[in-house]
Write a protein that binds this DNA or RNA. Sequence first.
DNA 1: TTGAAAGCGCTAACAA
DNA 2: TTGTTAGCGCTTTCAA
Lengths: 334, 334
Amino acid sequence: MTKSGVTSDDVAKLAKVSQSAVSRAFTDGASISEETRNRVQAAARELGYRPNALARAMTSGRSRLIALLAAYLDNQFYPVVLEELSRSLQSRGYHVLLFMTEPGKQDEVVQRILQYQVDGIVMASATLSSRLAAECARTGIPIVQLNRYVASSPASSVTSDNIEGGSLVADLLARAGHQRIAYIAGAEDSSTNRDREAGFYKGLAQHGMTVFARAVGGYKFDGAAAAARTLMAADNRPDAVFVANDHMAFAVMDVLRAEFGLRIPDDISVVGYDDVPEAAWQGYALTTVSQEPRQMIEATVSILLEQIEQQSVRSRAAVIPARLVVRQTARLPD
Amino acid sequence: MTKSGVTSDDVAKLAKVSQSAVSRAFTDGASISEETRNRVQAAARELGYRPNALARAMTSGRSRLIALLAAYLDNQFYPVVLEELSRSLQSRGYHVLLFMTEPGKQDEVVQRILQYQVDGIVMASATLSSRLAAECARTGIPIVQLNRYVASSPASSVTSDNIEGGSLVADLLARAGHQRIAYIAGAEDSSTNRDREAGFYKGLAQHGMTVFARAVGGYKFDGAAAAARTLMAADNRPDAVFVANDHMAFAVMDVLRAEFGLRIPDDISVVGYDDVPEAAWQGYALTTVSQEPRQMIEATVSILLEQIEQQSVRSRAAVIPARLVVRQTARLPD
DNA sequence: TTGAAAGCGCTAACAA
DNA sequence: TTGTTAGCGCTTTCAA
């Protein structure tokens, strides 16, 4: 008995057709006459019938469920992405099943995901374990890593052009005449951090400069605050700092202003990365690099659906152009 | 064929037991000897077997899926709640299936939710349509409205003590000597707004005061900014404003500072509601009322699971105490 | 285009 | 404690 109590059999009886006719009436492109379809749908409406998605998933082998695996949602980039992803999938008849990673229980979560027979997996703010990668490769479930990639893995990835983005920031800061430019890193093992940092150094090099100081914030609010304190405790302080994401940049700005009495950008420039909604708030007005979440999600969904619907296993790596968003936390070139 | 290819039948064969023994080995509290359970699990491990959650749901009638229905995630209160809810349910073997409301497609979304045979529904930032309420009552699916309630509905609700919270704010502002206290409302049809406003007026009344001015922000960032402009365009401006949630309060602060050059709290006090993470950031340091999301989620989960597992239909209304969080945007009483 | 029949992988009586 | 059996509600051959 389905939770609503009425099954395709009930509808079939009322409409005086076979149960399979009912199934066909609810399947796009099925071989059924206009007339029977109408009869079935009338009967269905009368009974309040609604196909059981679970039963459908069982027999068809597609659950139309996409797992989203995330480690945290406190960086506003992720809620934005999650909402967008969910809407986009929903409009195509898919739905998001949410999984939060649990420290030390990585494998258990992987098992859970696979038990639900999801048609695809999106990894956001979570790193793909080799265990999950292997299992999915074996079972043919496509994975898209959002904002992260592992070169060796068979999974697809969607990122912004982090190298270009980092380089854009270096160029802006150097042209503004900064002499002592520091970097506050995200998680050191993440590809986003590696690329943003590499692009940043490359950009500095083009101006004949190197990074003045460096600290690690690990993409954490508190970590970034601590990193800022470390940087500012030195005898010779930086006059500009590129922070690996906005979420950390807010913490850095708080420390610079509240604990060191600095004015931004008069005393020191700060630049972030992501362009989360808060970056536009006047309390911060953060100069940053946009990740274009809309485009990233569009790419994610199209990769996923292509692999699901065409059964193709060809993994892709989409790179979305980065765009500098100039607000008020960085001194400008003349 | 399950996506991993191996079924309980395969395991049964290898372990030389019946297929139902395999099922029992994976069910807590099933009647099975230690020995067979071990044999089965060894075989399962060897084959990489993993029970199919969908098949299990079909036969048992419980999907262990909880639908979360939300209208938006850009108010940070919701990501916090979503993460907490997902973790809490996950640790109990349930999972969150996310649905975003779509304007004008309310009914379609309701159908989708019910098709997935979810065991329960949590409504966050979304109002319960009478259609959904009716369907769920009929099918016995428990609903918890988070941060919202409809008196007449059979659904449960979990809210903070919004009346008390509003009253606390009025008291703080009145005791600080404010003379012209304004209110910026959220969505007028929401119970949170009604209660916060009612409590606020009650609190003012206890000091022999009434609200000085009122505008509506509709729980939207831009709406709140517009409301602030309206309030400040008057000849006689308020000297304090209670904003119905933090998300709007940030917009209000931006307008007051950037467009009117006001200092907070020297020129005007601002108080919000929710205590979202950003309220603690130094750029705002917002005085607000905490909703205690942890406690709210705890209550939500316990109501849901009680109704699911005990089949009870007794709906409950949990009210979590509100707590004033004093930061720096409101003048203090001497 | 239609219906009959065979599962999908599992749980849950029921007997043994 | 165990195995046998009958479904859960649907999709998908296969014949007609």
